[in-house]
Amino acid sequence: DLSALRVEEVQNVINAMQKILECPICLELIKEPVSTKCDHIFCKFCMLKLLNQKKGPSQCPLCKNDITKRSLQESTRFSQLVEELLKIICAFQLDTGLEYANSYNFAKKENNSPEHLKDEVSIIQSMGYRNRAKRLLQSEPENPSLQETSLSVQLSNLGTVRTLRTKQRIQPQRTSVYIELGSDSSEDTVNKATYCSVGDQELLQITPQGTRDEISLDSAKKAACEFSETDVTNTEHHQPSNNDLNTTEKRAAERHPEKYQGSSVSNLHVEPCGTNTHASSLQHENSSLLLTKDRMNVEKAEF
């Protein structure tokens, strides 16, 4: 173990290094160091905050020279020094078990990766560091076993998940096959086929009936047209017969005018059967003409 005197000496050296690497504005270890034209180094955030307070150039807090945003430059070497100082402080805390008085939040800088452990060898070769390295080497064999167990647990979990997924996939297939086998029997399929065939026959029977009705309507229309044509021909046949009657009536009127007047009046009210309204109107006109002729003949006879 380190003596108290040596611990104090190391602590004083760390404090001196820390004062050199402090920012003059925030009085902390410089984060993202930036250098000016006057070779003074500050935190990048502190300098941008200072420049944004005034429009135009501002003055350096140490030498009062003008500073602009374009004049600022990043210093990589200074950032490396800060990183190495942080590593020294971490090693000091691990070796002594004491917390550094002016320690900052170094938890963000710590890294437990194997590459980081290899890099620590180049920091300080001390008894405390050696003991700590031995402890780490002793704890390393235990870690692979834990990793193997965790991997086995994960693989077993994956296997159970896969088996569950396969079961879920197989179950719908089985149910679907069961439904297909038990849903419709052979008799049901035959009945469905016969039902479809009967429906098709009914459709075939319905369509000819409609065509037959249309044919019957067409035949009825044709018969009505033929009947009207026969009526017209009958009226045409009746007209010459009426003319013959008129000639006979004229002759009778010349011989017996008194008797014919009474008979002509009675004939006005008689309509021949089986004739249309057109034929009756023609008869009325003929009878009126005959009456006028008879009157003329009677007057001539009187004179």
Rank of each mutant, 00 (worst) to 15 (best):
D1K: 08
D1P: 06
D1E: 06
L2V: 13
S3G: 08
A4T: 09
L5Y: 08
L5A: 03
R6E: 07
R6V: 07
R6K: 11
R6F: 03
E8P: 06
E9W: 01
E9M: 00
V10N: 00
V10R: 00
Q11C: 13
N12V: 06
N12I: 00
V13N: 03
N15L: 14
N15V: 09
N15G: 14
A16V: 02
A16Q: 15
Q18K: 05
Q18L: 05
I20M: 14
I20F: 12
L21E: 00
L21C: 14
L21W: 15
L21N: 02
L21R: 00
C23M: 02
P24S: 01
C26K: 00
L27P: 01
L27M: 04
L27T: 02
E28T: 02
E28I: 00
L29M: 05
I30F: 14
K31V: 07
K31R: 12
K31T: 10
E32N: 04
E32S: 07
E32W: 03
E32Y: 04
E32Q: 03
E32H: 06
V34R: 01
V34N: 01
S35D: 01
T36R: 00
T36D: 03
T36M: 06
K37P: 08
C38T: 00
D39N: 06
H40L: 00
H40G: 01
H40D: 02
I41M: 08
F42G: 00
C43F: 00
L48D: 11
K49M: 07
K49D: 03
L50K: 02
L50D: 00
L51V: 06
N52V: 02
Q53V: 06
K54V: 04
K55A: 09
G56R: 03
P57A: 15
P57V: 12
S58E: 06
S58Y: 05
S58W: 04
S58I: 02
Q59Y: 02
Q59R: 03
C60W: 01
L62M: 12
L62H: 00
L62W: 02
C63V: 00
K64C: 02
K64Y: 02
D66H: 14
T68L: 08
T68C: 09
T68F: 00
K69V: 13
K69I: 04
R70L: 14
R70E: 11
R70H: 05
L72R: 01
Q73R: 06
S75D: 15
T76F: 15
T76I: 10
R77C: 01
R77H: 03
R77Y: 08
R77G: 15
F78E: 06
S79N: 05
S79F: 00
Q80S: 13
V82Q: 06
E83I: 02
E83D: 06
E83P: 15
E84C: 08
L85C: 11
K87D: 11
K87H: 09
K87I: 03
I89K: 06
C90Y: 14
F92N: 00
L94M: 06
L94V: 08
L94E: 12
D95N: 00
E99K: 10
Y100L: 01
Y100M: 13
A101T: 09
N102S: 14
N102Y: 14
S103T: 12
N105Y: 10
F106A: 05
F106L: 12
A107V: 08
A107T: 11
K108I: 07
S113M: 14
S113Y: 04
E120D: 09
V121W: 09
I123M: 14
I123F: 15
I124R: 08
Q125C: 05
Q125I: 00
Q125V: 02
G128D: 12
Y129P: 08
Y129S: 09
Y129Q: 05
R130K: 11
R130T: 10
R130A: 10
R130W: 14
N131H: 15
N131I: 06
N131Q: 01
N131K: 12
R132D: 02
R135L: 14
R135G: 13
L136P: 12
L137F: 08
Q138R: 10
S139H: 05
S139K: 13
E140M: 03
E140K: 10
E140I: 06
E140T: 07
P141N: 07
E142S: 09
E142Q: 11
P144W: 04
S145I: 07
S145K: 01
L146N: 09
L146R: 13
Q147H: 04
T149L: 07
T149R: 14
T149V: 08
S150R: 12
S150N: 12
S150P: 01
L151K: 13
L151Q: 11
L151M: 09
S152N: 12
S152L: 08
V153L: 14
V153A: 08
Q154F: 03
S156V: 07
S156Y: 02
S156N: 08
N157I: 01
N157L: 04
N157R: 05
L158I: 13
G159E: 10
G159Y: 07
G159C: 11
T160L: 06
V161T: 12
T163N: 09
L164E: 10
L164M: 09
R165Q: 08
T166P: 03
T166A: 09
R169A: 10
I170W: 15
Q171S: 08
R174W: 12
R174M: 11
G182E: 02
S183Y: 01
S186D: 09
D188Q: 09
N191M: 09
K192R: 04
K192I: 10
A193T: 09
Y195I: 04
D200E: 04
D200A: 05
D200P: 10
L203E: 14
L203K: 10
L203S: 15
L204H: 06
L204S: 12
I206K: 04
I206G: 08
I206V: 01
I206F: 13
P208D: 04
P208L: 04
Q209N: 01
G210P: 06
R212M: 09
D213R: 05
D213V: 04
S216N: 06
L217D: 02
L217E: 06
D218I: 07
D218M: 10
D218S: 11
S219K: 13
A220P: 02
A220D: 11
K222Q: 05
A224V: 05
F227K: 07
E229G: 13
D231R: 13
V232Q: 07
T233N: 14
T233P: 09
T233C: 03
N234Y: 11
T235P: 08
E236V: 04
S241C: 08
D244Y: 06
L245R: 13
N246R: 07
N246T: 02
T247Y: 14
T247S: 08
T248R: 03
T248P: 14
K250S: 14
K250F: 06
R251S: 09
A253R: 15
E254G: 02
R255N: 12
R255F: 10
H256G: 05
H256R: 02
H256D: 15
H256Q: 12
H256I: 14
P257M: 03
P257N: 12
E258C: 09
E258P: 08
K259S: 05
Y260D: 15
Y260C: 04
Q261V: 08
G262P: 07
S264N: 06
S264I: 02
V265C: 10
S266A: 08
E271L: 05
P272T: 15
P272F: 06
P272I: 05
C273I: 12
C273D: 13
T275I: 03
N276Y: 09
T277N: 03
H278F: 15
H278D: 15
S281P: 08
L282K: 06
H284D: 05
L289Y: 13
L291G: 10
D294F: 13
D294E: 03
M296W: 06
M296C: 08
M296Y: 05
M296I: 15
M296P: 01
N297L: 08
N297V: 15
V298Q: 14
K300T: 10
E302K: 15
